[in-house]
Simulated scan of single mutants.
Amino acid sequence: MFDLRAEAQVVAQSSMIAWEKLSGATVLITGVTGLIGSACARVLLERNRADGRDIRVLGLARSAERACEALADYSEEDGLTIIEGDLLGTAIGDSHPDFIIHSACPTASRFFAEHPVETADAIVLGTRRMLELAKTSSAKGFVYVSSMEVYGDGNNAAGLDRLLTEGDVGYVNPTVVRSCYPEGKRMAEQYCAAYASEYGVPATIVRLAQTFGPGIPKNDSRLFALCARRAMAGEDIVLKTTGASTRMYLYTADAVTALLAVLLEGEPGRAYNAANPSTYSSVKGMADMVAALFPEKNVQVRCEIDPSAPYPPEHHLPLDVSALEDLGWQPTKDLPQMYANLIQYLED
């Protein structure tokens, strides 16, 4: 059985984080039922338990019931308050957060394709609302959880022989329906830069590589989860693309330390790549690695290309993480370790 709380306790002792800046602070986390939001909440609440930092965590969630389930080990005595509502219609009240971790966002490709308007609204309008809250609250820090998908597929589709820095953003076709996600992320990043420039809001951006680990929904439909579940069941892994796209990955706990490092030490208006360079792999290479974890089950990886599948075009995303490393951050889990922990969690 994988212990999410025990992992949070380890992260809560990380020397990469300037914990003293959070003493007595109120931290609003949007999307607190999601993988990233719930992981951030657990770490902050465990830091409270470890040394009495008196951090107040406000968790915004569309379902208070789901939020309480995701954070069942914690209560108001630990510093947790759940606010039920969505990004666009909820009154935050007189909370005046000192810091905001804005992680709320749709994550499923199929949802992007079927609900592009709702996806774009949640990303763009939701981010502007949180930035406005940061402005009126005179927040000390704001970090937006962005995505490697902002890099698009134009200048890197043929493959790169160098790492992508934060300025190497490529082409996205705005008339493709699924572009609601990467284009929305780009506009949200623009709002972060604009609020930092015009209003002095200390808004920062973290562009996460594909992030996963224990804590995902057990029925998660994204490819990394499907690969794990099918291999565990002894079933072949079927890819709907060529699997030629290459990318980096990031363990959930490492994403938390990256977000906290940028929240507390990042330069306003700036974006930071967050990834583990050792994980760089093609999609098929990752699937082959997962299949090899179960040699006794003879799992095969097959490509059955479906042009209508709601996946991004072929892309190659070797991210340069030196800006984040300059803040003292380092990843801790490689791809085999990420899958080992994920599989242990899924077996529970």
Rank of each mutant, 00 (worst) to 15 (best):
Y280S: 07
Y280H: 11
S281D: 13
S282D: 05
S282E: 09
S282C: 08
V283D: 00
V283F: 03
V283G: 02
V283S: 04
V283M: 14
V283P: 00
K284T: 11
K284I: 11
K284S: 11
K284M: 14
K284C: 10
K284F: 08
G285Q: 08
G285P: 05
G285S: 12
G285Y: 07
G285M: 08
G285E: 08
M286W: 05
M286C: 12
M286H: 04
M286G: 02
A287G: 03
A287F: 07
A287I: 05
D288H: 11
D288P: 04
D288W: 10
D288T: 12
D288Y: 07
D288K: 14
D288G: 08
M289K: 14
M289W: 05
M289G: 14
M289N: 09
V290M: 04
V290S: 05
V290R: 04
V290T: 06
V290C: 07
A291P: 00
A291H: 05
A291M: 09
A292Y: 05
A292P: 06
L293H: 07
L293E: 13
L293G: 07
L293C: 10
L293N: 02
F294Y: 12
F294M: 03
F294H: 07
F294A: 01
F294T: 00
F294D: 06
P295R: 08
P295Y: 05
P295C: 04
P295T: 02
E296L: 02
E296R: 09
E296I: 00
E296T: 02
K297R: 15
K297T: 08
K297G: 08
K297Y: 02
K297A: 10
K297I: 01
N298Y: 01
N298K: 12
N298R: 13
V299G: 01
V299D: 00
V299T: 00
V299W: 01
V299A: 00
Q300V: 10
Q300H: 07
V301F: 04
V301C: 03
V301T: 06
V301N: 05
R302P: 02
R302H: 15
R302A: 11
R302M: 11
R302E: 12
R302D: 10
C303V: 02
C303W: 00
C303S: 15
C303K: 13
C303H: 06
E304M: 09
I305G: 00
I305S: 06
I305D: 01
I305N: 01
I305Y: 01
D306Q: 04
D306M: 01
D306C: 03
D306T: 01
P307N: 07
P307H: 05
P307C: 06
P307Y: 11
P307E: 07
S308Q: 11
S308Y: 04
S308W: 00
S308K: 10
S308T: 14
A309P: 00
A309D: 05
A309K: 02
A309M: 02
P310M: 14
P310A: 13
P310W: 14
P310F: 15
P310H: 14
Y311E: 15
Y311S: 11
Y311T: 12
Y311M: 12
Y311L: 15
Y311P: 02
Y311C: 08
Y311D: 10
Y311F: 15
P312S: 13
P312I: 07
P312G: 10
P312V: 06
